[in-house]
Amino acid sequence: MNKSELIEALAQETGLHRNVAEQVVKEVFSAMTESLINGEGVEIRGFGSFSIREYGSYTGRNPKTGEKISVKPKRLPFFKVGKGLRERVKNKVGQ
């Protein structure tokens, strides 16, 4: 499912106009992005939480050429699945 299918499904389930559903979806993910940019986490009960992980610089290698490259420090979002969702998905393996 992609973003426009999500918007469509949200409009259908709530009866909201598609434009409104689109604004809600955009607002939700931009609020989350904003929080992460500010170095703050996101915590949605039953779904999951995002936190920021800082990675220091290191010397890596280009796996193709073997050439040494220095990798700059970076920040990445880390998602931890919430308990509710984890339990719902867990036993569906192989289905």
């Binding site: 607002e27 609020a31 989350m32 929080s35 703050e40 986490g41 996101v42 949605i44 009960r45």
Partner: peptide, 9 residues
């Protein structure tokens, strides 16, 4: 502060 569902609302 951590963003929660209430903040999204």
């Amino acid at each position: 502060m951590t963003l929660t569902k209430a903040d999204l609302v």
